[in-house]
Design a binder for these strands. Structure first.
Lengths: 330, 330
DNA sequence: CTGAAAGCGCTAACAT
DNA sequence: ATGTTAGCGCTTTCAG
C-alpha cells in the first residue's frame, strides 16, 4: 500500500467515472452531468487530489506553464525589490508565478539563469541586462524577453527604462539654477547604459563647463573616498551629481565627514528610503520602479499572448524631488 | 516544416543514435562510447537542444523539480528582501530555483500560493506564516515546509526565528541602564508571534514597572500618531521601545516633529538602512535576516534530502547596536 | 555499451 | 454527455 500523491486515475476510480470526466471537471468544463461532477468533486476532496501542472502542460496545446522568470541585479536592493513586487502583483492578477534570480552584474549568471529558466519552460523573461552581450537570449532560448532598467547590448526586445538623459540633465539644471557653475560628477559602472545616459544628461546640461568627474564607482566606500578626494582637490566643485543611490550614500557620508553637508549641494539619481530624514534631506531624481515593473510585466504578457510588433522602448518619467541638499546656494 | 523546439528524438535522429543514448549523454552518464557522445554533443549544439526538465521530472524516480517556494510578507521590504537573497544564494549553490510570493499578512493568499506551489511540484517551501492557522500546509500539501521569522499556528515544522524575547529584554535593559524608568512600548500586529515575543521581552525587563503601551500599529503613520499622543499624554515616558522598523520610522518622525529626538531615548527592534545616518543615529536590536535565510534554506534542503527528525526551532541571535538614540540619558 | 518498449499524469482527437 | 486511445518529452526497465 503506497502513499503516493493521488492522480487523476485515482480520482476516477473512487468516483466511478472515466479519467477524462475527471479532467473535464478539474478543468471546469461545463459539459458534465451535475451528479457525475458532484461525485468527482467529492473524490477530489476525500483524496486531497491536486492536479499536476507539469504533466498537464506537457500535453496541452498552448504549452504554457504560467510561470515567468525575473532576473535583476540583486533582489535585496531597494530598486530591484520594488520592481520585483510590482511584477509579482501583475503576475498574481493573472495567476502567474514568478521565478527570481540575482545577477550581481555577472554576464555568466545572466546566461546560466536564462537557460535554466528556459529549461523550466517559463513562458517569458523580464531581465535587467548586465551590459554584456545579451544576444544569446531572445534568439537562443526562444523565450519572449522584456528588458528593464537598462538597454541590452546585441539583442532586440521591448525595453522599459527611466528617462535617464533628461532626468539627469534636469537635476544638473536644477543645480545651475541655484547658481552653481562647478558641478562634480560621480558615476557608477561605466559599461551600464544607465550610467552612460545619466552622464550624457549631465554633459548636456553643462555643455563645455563640465566639472570634475569620477567614473566606475562600485560601492558607497569607493564613492565616499572619491568625493573626499574631489572636494580636497585643486578645483573643488560647489555641487555634486551622483548617478545611483549607492554612490549618493557614499557621498552623503563624505560630506558629513568633511562637515560640508550644508555647503556643498547634492542631487542624486534614484531615490532611496529615508532620504527625506537625513540632514539635510537629500534631493533626488526619483525613478518609479513600481511603474517600471508593471509596464515590463504588461509588455511581457502581451508578447506571451502572441503580440508580434517591433521592439518597443518605453521610457518611464523620473521626478525631481527637492528636499534640501539640492537647494543649497553656492 | 515546423520550428518546434527540438526534442531528444530530434537530437537522436541527427546524431544517428538512439533516444536513450542521447538521454545518457545529456545526463552525464559515463557509459557511452566517446565517439557517440561526441556526435550527440554536436547535434545538441547544432540544434540548440535544451532538455525539458518538466518531462524529465515526470518520469524520474526522485521526482524532484529542483525548485522551492519562498513566501514572505513582502518581497520589497528590506528584511524580507535580505532573507530572500540569502535563500537564493543557498539555492543557487545547489542549482535550485526559487519561486517567490508576497503574502501581505493575508492568510488566504498564504493558502492559495502554497497550493499553487504544491501543484507546480516545488520540492519544498520556506514560509513566513501570516499568523492564521497554517495547519493545512504540512499535512495537506505534503510538502516539506520550513517556517521563518515567525512561529506557525496549528502546524509543526522546522522554524527559524530571531531571539525575540531576549533581544527585546536586552534593549529595554539597555534603556534602564541609562537611567530610564518610564519606557513606552509601541508594537506592531499583536497576532504575530514576533510582536508578542518582543512584548514579552519588554515586560520581562521591566517587571511591574511597565510603561505606557500602544499595540497593533500598522504603518509609520499610525506609529507617528501614537508616539505623539503618548508623549503628550499624562505620563510621558522618557524612553521608547519599538518592535519593528516600520514603527521605529514613524516614531523617529514623531520625535522630530516634537523636537524631542535628543531628549527621548529610542531603541527599535530590527535594523534598517541608513539608521546610522539619522540624527541622532538610531540604536537598534539588529536581526540577521541573511543568516535566517541561510539557516532556513539549509534546514529545508535537509528535509528534502529525507531527514525526518522532529521539528526543530532554531533561534538566530540578535545584536544590540548602540548608535546614539538609545544612549540618551534621562 | 546500446537500444526498444513501457509509462510518468495529463489532455487532444476521436469515437460512442 | 461520456469514454477510449494516443502521445507530450523524457527516464526507466529490461533485452540484446
Amino acid at each position: 500500500m503506497t502513499s503516493h500523491r493521488p492522480t487523476m486515475n485515482d480520482v476516477a476510480r473512487t468516483a466511478g467515472v472515466s479519467l477524462k470526466t475527471v479532467s473535464r471537471v478539474v478543468n471546469g468544463e461545463t459539459t458534465v452531468a451535475p451528479d457525475l461532477a458532484a461525485r468527482v468533486h467529492a473524490a477530489v476532496e476525500s483524496l486531497d487530489y491536486r492536479p499536476h501542472v507539469g504533466a498537464s502542460m506537457l500535453r496541452r496545446n498552448d504549452r504554457r506553464t504560467r510561470t515567468i522568470g525575473l532576473l535583476l541585479d540583486d533582489v535585496s536592493h531597494p530598486f530591484s525589490a520594488a520592481l520585483h513586487r510590482a511584477v509579482e502583483d501583475q503576475a498574481r492578477a493573472r495567476g502567474i508565478q514568478v521565478l527570481t534570480g540575482s545577477l550581481d552584474q555577472d554576464p555568466v549568471r545572466e546566461q546560466t539563469l536564462a537557460e535554466a529558466f528556459a529549461e523550466r519552460q517559463t513562458d517569458g523573461l523580464i531581465l535587467a541586462p548586465t551590459g554584456a552581450d545579451s544576444g544569446h537570449l531572445g534568439a537562443h532560448t526562444g523565450l519572449p524577453v522584456v528588458f528593464v532598467d537598462r538597454t541590452p547590448t546585441g539583442a532586440a526586445g521591448d525595453t522599459v527604462v527611466s528617462t535617464n538623459v533628461s532626468g539627469a540633465a534636469g537635476a544638473v539644471r536644477h543645480l545651475i539654477a541655484q547658481g552653481h557653475r562647478s558641478i562634480g560628477f560621480l558615476g557608477g559602472h561605466q559599461h551600464l547604459s544607465t550610467t552612460r545616459d545619466r552622464h550624457r544628461g549631465y554633459l548636456r546640461a553643462l555643455g563645455s563647463r563640465a566639472g570634475p568627474a569620477v567614473h566606475d564607482l562600485h560601492d558607497p566606500t569607493d564613492a565616499e573616498r572619491a568625493a573626499v578626494a574631489m572636494l580636497r582637490g585643486p578645483h573643488p566643485p560647489t555641487a555634486l551629481f551622483t548617478t545611483q543611490s549607492m554612490v549618493t550614500l557614499g557621498v552623503v557620508r563624505a560630506l558629513r565627514r568633511l562637515s560640508r553637508e550644508r555647503s556643498v549641494a547634492l542631487v542624486g539619481f534614484d531615490d532611496f528610503p529615508l532620504a527625506d530624514l537625513l540632514e539635510p534631506p537629500v534631493t533626488v531624481v526619483a525613478q518609479d520602479p513600481a511603474r517600471m515593473g508593471r509596464t515590463a510585466a504588461a509588455a511581457l504578457f502581451e508578447r506571451i499572448e502572441g503580440y508580434d510588433g517591433p521592439p518597443r522602448e518605453i521610457r518611464i518619467p523620473t521626478t525631481l524631488i527637492p528636499r534640501g541638499s539640492g537647494e543649497l546656494p553656492i
